[in-house]
Design a protein around this nucleic acid. Structure first.
Ligand SMILES: [Mn+2]
Ligand SMILES: [Mn+2]
Ligand SMILES: [Mn+2]
Ligand SMILES: [Mn+2]
Lengths: 156, 156
DNA sequence: GTATCAAGTTAGCACCGTCTAACTTTTCAT
DNA sequence: ATGAAAAGTTAGACGGTGCTAACTTGATAC
């Protein structure tokens, strides 16, 4: 059957198929880089705090197994984000370091924003870990401005 | 080498490995349901506005090909969210309808929240499409409260 | 009624991200 | 120096999400 104009009640209009498809394509694109972003950000953290990033620590902090980490690190190396040597710790390339720094800044903005909104720190960290990958530059700017605002948090 | 306590400067402390792993696990869990959520929400929209949800329309609004939609719909049917008959439109099960409604409400809250923050409607829709899947109940409540607030939007 | 065209399906491929099991290498304590 | 434990690697499996090419079915126009 062909679509019928509207079934008696069509309160709000739909966006155009193209516009909607654009949004979904952007989300799929973001999903493709999420894992890489989390890895390089975590690797940078480990290097900053422990001097090196060992696969075993990456695994335990991500909550995945060692072979999963190994395979993912190989992909990241292939993509020019990390450098590896067998049985050694992992290091970031310049490109990896740049991405990590960008992610760290963005992550912190999202966390501070959520806390300023009134969320507890623990939940803020949890939600930020997912939200951060789907925040456009414009939105990030608004988050940053809100987070920096003077005055008490939005207590409820 | 074993991790050394700290490399001269360890300004901020790291969270425990377990806590951090918990956050990442929650994100991975959310990722597993993202696609299903987008599908049932879209199917509900199409049914509400056109009386039926045809695979070809699902495909064009998601920006993917017809075979991709077919395979995904089979998975959704397997998981009890939709019902299909060969060469026919797709329908939601009770479970699918319930999930779709939940997603619709959540999607709208996120969009209205972003707009209230000062974002343009177009970008709000784009970002919401990704963010919605990573918003906890607590955060959603804060978003809703902020969106409903009296007064002018946060113009910048 | 039949030809055509749109929609739907099937088969097959590729890559990602996860796991377990089994193996190798390195590190460390004695 | 050596043996045990920890860390790392490899192989193989599996499900998810995307694609193209080729086929089948259904809807439409004449
Ligand atoms: Mn993250
Ligand atoms: Mn992060
Ligand atoms: Mn979505
Ligand atoms: Mn949505």
């Amino acid at each position: 059957m062909k679509p019928v104009p509207a079934p008696l009640s069509a309160e709000d209009d739909l966006r155009s198929a193209e516009t909607q498809a654009g949004a979904f394509q952007a989300v799929r694109e973001a999903r493709r880089s999420e894992l890489a972003e989390d890895y390089v950000e975590l690797i940078a953290e480990l290097i900053a705090h422990f001097g090196e990033a060992r696969p075993v620590d990456i695994a335990s902090r991500l909550g995945v197994t060692a072979p999963t980490v190994a395979k993912t690190l190989d992909r990241l190396a292939r993509d020019g984000l990390v450098m590896r040597a067998r049985y050694r710790s992992v290091f970031l390339t310049d490109q990896g370091r740049a991405l990590a720094e960008e992610c760290r800044v963005r992550h912190d903005i999202v966390v501070r924003f959520l806390i300023r909104l009134g969320l507890d720190a623990e939940t803020a960290e949890q939600d930020a870990e997912g939200i951060e990958h789907h925040v456009s530059a414009r939105t990030l700017a608004l988050f940053a401005a809100f987070a920096e605002r003077r005055g008490q948090p939005e207590t409820r």
